[in-house]
Design a protein around this nucleic acid. Structure first.
Length: 751
DNA sequence: AGCACGCCGACT
DNA sequence: GTCGGCGTGCTC
């Protein structure tokens, strides 16, 4: 019975015959070696194939006795691929982050008595002894394999590490080579040429010369498993969690330490009943915090893409061997094969960081939920604030932590009385000062005087959002995209943040030749310059995707201001943080996405608990000082309060969580062609049973042209998962333009 | 994803 | 006359 095999490529599962002599049921979740484009690759068996006729190649060998993935995970990924019409291989590639290129000991022999003469001289030496496969040309070997004339033995080979040892060689060494050889004899064996060269204070070419002349040898032996992050002791003191009994529950609000203490109790319940726990976090900061709080509870493993391939493989082995009872990790930990998975904890389930970019565009919480169902595990949502989806689950919201907020409302009428509809004493109106309001400037000066630390969040990197000619209004745009070019003052560059196109900023306006090209829309560079002017001599750092200053002084508790984009929030809060400034909070609301205000609310709550103990002053500059999300925070409401309101609106407008959305993007280099294809897609959808209310659009994408492609979007709105899958069916075929589906779309902020 | 095949612009 | 741009198609 042929097997269906997943490979980490953007393709569906492909079929292969069982390896020669295999007997038994289909080994779902096992790694298998399969012929692929003339070579061999590691794939994962996902099921039995309904072999449809054409000649299949046989798989070469199963790699081990135990599955690499749990059956529940394989099922989850297969279903997700079907439901999202995403190639299965993309999901496997995104989620299975170890095991695709393990080292193999691969030996080949010819079938007894086979005549290989017709294959040419390349396999002349192939005989009945098992020789290393790498001695032969892979394509040639595959030709022999295809004729079933090859016998193969495949074993996982242990990770090797090499070390150099001095030996008595023949011939003469150069003086430097001689000296290097002496060093190696005295201090060796050494683990690399580079280290040897460093010890001997010569260049690597000298030491490699010694090796080629035969005066040094490399020994290889099995390497010990690479060290993983150490669990932290002493363990946290658990608090009664107070959670209801249900398959999906939630615990939000409070501070991280309070939540961790309660989650710890829940984890211990599971561990004591011999279950395993998976704790997923969206970023490095929350992962570190969680690891410190919980890793002392039991045998724990910290897992994320930051680990080296060897560490990942080792962590995988630990999980497989039942030696990891609690895994704290990024989304990549979802696929780790825990034998008794009984609880998945999902930290900050509404975080946009869970939306994978590129590849499968999967939304991790969707998969976590599915995996929990299929493994018989409970799901616990936790974090500073529930998602709109999570709010529907039973659970606990802890009282909001103390916050100190000061709103600078640029939008309030100037002549309005100081006490507006919001009678909070710290809610003031001030139009003065841009991009740093007078109030923020005062707070910054205090921080400097007292030698404390501040973080200013800017809406974007670079100096300004654009340059505009103040006489004719011309704005330089990207050649490939419909966006203005961002201005980078230090680099003297106009750059497209979408496609990377860049040019030197013109001295005169390219349209009217006027001299007045002015920056609009401050970015980190501009704001950092303002802070330097305000606080001469006070350390100012920048942290965004392109400019990551060394922040070690700040993390060493020395005074300073960090001007950053959101990128900083993935790191721990500076230890002596006294002030957080949101220089232009409206950025989070400007995104034309129904989740914008939920996202803004999440950001505010996230900032409030960013520092584990303190409540730094938060100065929020905005044109919408009475936005309900902001108001719910400074009125001291708990984290669920605002979302109740948000949910009512979602229900009224038929948005998630009350429906399931998918965005269909149709793109082509030619605008008319893209539009035409988008209309055809809409027709096809309506023609195959989609209702008028289920298909919206097509409409030009918010950025009509990106990287030279014109895009049109359709929005599918289905009552549930099954209906959405049915709606997506007719998109499978071929179209005259590129068609991409994004289930559960979330627009990211383009900084 | 890679990699090969195939058709139109600027040059050794 | 070619080199080489990336569009399209294929991998069991």
């Amino acid at each position: 019975m042929p097997w269906s095999v997943a490979l980490p490529l953007p393709i569906p599962a492909y079929d292969f015959g069982e390896p020669h002599g295999f007997e038994g049921p289909v080994p779902v979740g096992f790694r298998v070696l399969v012929p692929w484009q003339g070579e061999l690759r590691i794939g994962i068996v996902v099921g039995e194939s309904s072999a449809h006729g054409h000649r299949l190649r046989d798989a070469v060998a199963l790699l081990e006795e135990r599955p690499w993935l749990s059956a529940a995970l394989v099922d989850t990924l297969c279903r997700a691929a079907r439901a999202r019409s995403v190639p299965l291989g993309l999901l496997f590639g995104d989620f299975v982050s170890a095991g695709w290129d393990s080292a193999l000991d691969h030996r080949v022999a010819r079938v007894a008595g086979a005549d290989l003469a017709s294959f040419g001289p390349g396999v002349a030496e192939l005989n009945e002894d098992f020789l290393e496969a790498r001695r032969f040309d892979a394509t040639l070997l595959d030709a022999v394999r295809a004729q079933a004339l090859l016998v193969e033995r495949v074993q996982l080979s242990p990770r090797l590490e090499g070390s150099y040892r001095a030996v008595e060689g023949q011939g003469k060494l150069t003086p430097k080579g001689r000296a290097a050889w002496e060093v190696l004899r005295r201090e060796g064996p050494l683990s690399s040429l580079a280290e040897w060269a460093r010890r001997a204070a010569v260049s690597t070419s000298v030491v490699s010369g010694v090796v080629t002349k035969g005066w040094a040898q490399m020994d290889q032996r099995a390497a010990p498993p690479p060290p993983l992050p150490e669990p932290q002791l002493p363990p946290i003191r658990p608090q009664p969690h107070g959670l209801p009994t249900a398959a999906v529950t939630r615990l939000h609000g409070g501070r991280p330490a309070e939540r961790h203490a309660r989650v710890a109790a829940r984890i211990l319940e599971v561990i004591r009943a011999d279950g395993d726990v998976l704790y997923l976090t969206p970023d490095a900061a929350s992962r570190g915090r969680t690891w410190r709080a919980l890793s002392g509870l039991t045998e724990s493993v910290c897992y994320s893409g930051e680990l080296t391939p060897a560490q990942r493989e080792h962590a995988w082995e630990l999980a497989r061997a039942g030696r990891a009872r609690l895994i704290v990790g990024s989304y990549a930990a979802l696929a780790l094969p825990l034998a008794h998975l009984r609880l998945i904890v999902l930290e900050d389930e509404g975080s946009d960081a869970y939306k994978l970019q590129g590849g499968s565009r999967a939304f991790v919480p969707d998969l976590a939920r599915s995996l929990a169902e299929r493994s018989g595990a409970d799901l616990l949502l936790t974090g500073p604030v529930p998602s709109a989806e999570g709010l529907l689950e039973p659970g606990v919201v802890l009282p909001a932590p103390r916050a100190r907020l000061h709103v600078v409302d640029y939008g309030a009428p100037e002549e309005a009385p100081e006490v507006g509809p919001l009678s909070l004493p710290n809610h003031q109106r001030s139009r003065q000062g841009w991009p740093l309001s007078n109030d923020l400037q005062r707070a910054l000066k205090q921080v400097a005087e007292r030698g404390r630390q501040a973080v200013l969040l800017a809406p974007r990197r670079g100096y300004s959002a654009l340059l505009r000619c103040s006489s004719c209004g011309h704005t330089p745009m990207c050649r490939n995209c419909d966006v203005p070019l961002r201005f980078h003052a230090e680099r003297r560059e106009l750059t497209c943040h979408q496609c990377g196109y860049h040019l030197r900023p013109p001295d005169l306006c390219p349209a009217c030749e006027g001299p007045m090209m002015q920056p609009k829309g401050p970015g980190t560079e501009w704001i950092a310059a303002e802070v330097r002017r305000l606080l001469p001599g006070f350390p100012v750092y920048r942290y965004d995707r392109e400019q990551q200053d060394d922040l070690s002084a700040v993390y060493d508790s020395r005074p300073g201001v960090i001007v950053a984009t959101q990128a900083l929030l993935g790191l721990e809060a500076p230890p002596d943080l006294a002030l957080i400034g949101l220089t232009f909070a409206d950025t989070w609301l400007a995104v034309s996405d129904f989740r914008a205000s939920e996202r803004y609310h999440r950001l505010l709550r996230q900032l409030i608990e960013w520092h584990p103990q303190r409540a730094p002053l938060m100065v929020i500059q905005t044109f919408q000082g009475d936005h309900p999300a902001l108001r719910s925070v400074y009125e001291g409401k708990d984290a669920g309060f605002y979302l109740e309101e948000e949910l009512r609106a979602r229900k009224l407008l038929a948005y998630p969580p009350y429906v399931r959305l998918a965005q269909v993007e149709v793109a082509a280099r030619d605008q008319a062609k893209a539009q035409q294809a988008a209309l055809e897609v809409a027709q096809a959808l309506l023609g195959s049973g989609a209702g008028e209310r289920e298909v919206l659009g097509p409409a030009p994408a918010p950025v009509a042209r990106l990287r030279g492609l014109y895009a049109f979007n359709l929005l599918l709105r289905a009552r549930d998962e099954e209906r959405l899958e049915a709606l997506l069916k007719p998109l499978q075929g071929r179209w005259s333009a590129r068609v991409r589906v994004d289930v559960n779309p979330r627009d990211l902020l383009n900084l």
